[in-house]
Each structure stands twice: as structure tokens, then as C-alpha cells.
Design a protein around this nucleic acid. Structure first.
Lengths: 133, 133
DNA sequence: CTACGAGTTGAAGTGCGCTTCAAGTCAAGA
DNA sequence: TCTTGACTTGAAGCGCACTTCAACTCGTAG
């Protein structure tokens, strides 16, 4: 079972075969080998897909992920450029985490206040007001 | 300047007027007053919009935000249900933050390794492998 | 009175990330 | 041989969150 079919890869990765075909079409994964017309994947693809999913869950678009996992065009100065890209992403992720934590706090506070909606909270000018301004 | 026009609200909230009209159409904000056909908003709307943006940035869909900011249908047991909703959202946010932090770590590590792409890292079976499996 | 800018409406269009569909191919099993 | 099931393709469709467009209405300024 060295070479996997679309169906096998899909079920192991928790995707639909159509998603894999789509990823291939748009260049997110390399074109798979064909055996009498059917795609055959090395199990390595599972790592790649797991990584992609993780990045997606972290809020990256497929366009960003393509750059992240598929490297750069041939004429790229390589390592330096990757470092720059990664650190830029890192900053974005950090910013996102901060906003998430702010949201977390809004929710948490809403549990301890008697407003029926966050909106009502905001309009009342409670402590939330300072955070959403 | 007590009552704001769409254009004014939009520019203060960093949105397009079309977005405000859209929000109204889909019930995310209440139908604005009209003065000779034109929308007029109380400045309160800005709080609401800021809150909505925050929730959006934290990954909520507009459908979720509608529930979050606009309360529930009339027949709702009110407070308890809101508490439950908020704590459910809180758990989701927490999970998202964790995944973001995992992503953060992947990025951080990629800065200190010599692979050219995260994909290459994963295939090499470096420390990333444990995290994305 | 005319022109202008900002607003109005409903309908259609956009980009993303897929999914669904129609029509066909292929290898294995009854 | 025939059927079954998993696959193939290109094209179209979908839900989300808006944006854009066409055709129109206002109030104000010249």
C-alpha cells in the first residue's frame, strides 16, 4: 500500500476527493502520478495536507498557503526570502492571536454581566466600550 | 451632527456604504430611520459596528454575529440561553487560539531551520512532524 | 432652471473554496 | 460478458460577504 488513490488520501486526510482534485488544479499540491488515468499519491502527501489544514485553521488563505508550502518561483533568492515571508506571517499570526484574545475577553465578560446581548453591553457603555472603540 | 448619513457612518467605521446597506438587508443592524428616503444613524451604530468587526476578525461568520449582537427570537428563555451561547463561543475561541498558537510555533521553528519551505520541513520528518500529525 | 453630489433600489457580479453534475474510462469480480 | 465501483474530465453551481451597476430621487448651489 505504498501508493494511495484519491479516495484513500481523502479519507485519511478528512477531505473529499474533489478537494484534492481542486488543490491539484490550483497548484497547491503537485500533479499526482497517474496509473491508467487515476491519481496515485505517496503517503508523504498526508503530511503536506495536515500542514495545509493547520495553516487554514489558523486563518491563512489557500493563496498564502501555496506560497508557504510550495516555495517560490525559480528566480528567488531562496533562504532570505523565506525567512522574511515566515516572519511576516508570524507577525500576522501574533496580531490575530491578540484580537482573538480580545474577543475572548469580551465573551468572558459577557458571561458575568446581565446584558442580554453584547450589543446591549456596548450601548450601555460598560467596560466593553473601552475595548471595542 | 447627531444623526449620521451612510457615508459618514461608513467612513468612520472603515466600511463602504454598500456594506452598511448589506448589513441592514440581512438584519445585522436594525433598519435605519429615513429622512426623505436617506438613512440616518445614531452614533451608537459605531459601537455596534466596531463590535461586529471585532467578532469578524476573531473568525465569526455574519450569521453567528447576528445571533451574538441581535439577541434571540421572542420566544427565547433569555438569559440562560445567552449564557450558554456565550460559553460555547468562548470554547470555540479558545480552541481557535490554541490552533493559532500551534501555527505560530510552526512558523517560529521554520525561522530556525534550514528548510526552504514548511513542506520540505514536514517531509524531512523534523520536529514539525510531531505537531502536524 | 440646471447641474451636482450623495443618497436610493433591486439585480447582477466577484472571489474564495470547494461541491456537484454529466458523461465517460478502467480493472476486477460474478 | 456484464456489472459494479472507483475513478477521470470540464463545466456549472453554491454559500459567504460584499461590490458594482443601472436607473432613479433628493436637497443645495449657481
Amino acid at each position: 500500500m505504498q501508493q494511495l488513490t484519491v479516495g484513500e488520501v481523502a479519507s485519511r486526510a478528512g477531505l473529499n476527493p474533489s478537494a484534492l482534485r481542486y488543490y491539484e488544479r490550483v497548484g497547491l499540491i503537485p500533479r499526482a502520478l497517474r496509473v491508467s488515468g487515476q491519481r496515485r499519491y505517496s503517503p508523504d502527501i498526508l503530511n503536506r495536507l495536515a500542514l495545509m489544514r493547520m495553516a487554514q485553521e489558523a486563518g491563512f488563505t489557500l493563496a498564502e498557503i501555496r506560497v508557504l508550502v510550495s516555495g517560490f518561483p525559480e528566480d528567488t533568492p531562496a533562504a532570505e526570502r523565506w525567512q522574511e515571508l515566515a516572519s511576516r506571517k508570524l507577525a500576522e499570526v501574533d496580531a490575530l492571536i491578540q484580537r482573538m484574545q480580545a474577543m475572548r475577553q469580551v465573551l468572558q465578560e459577557s458571561l458575568h454581566c446581565d446584558c442580554l446581548t453584547l450589543d446591549a453591553c456596548a450601548e450601555r457603555g460598560s467596560s466593553l466600550k473601552r475595548k471595542v472603540g
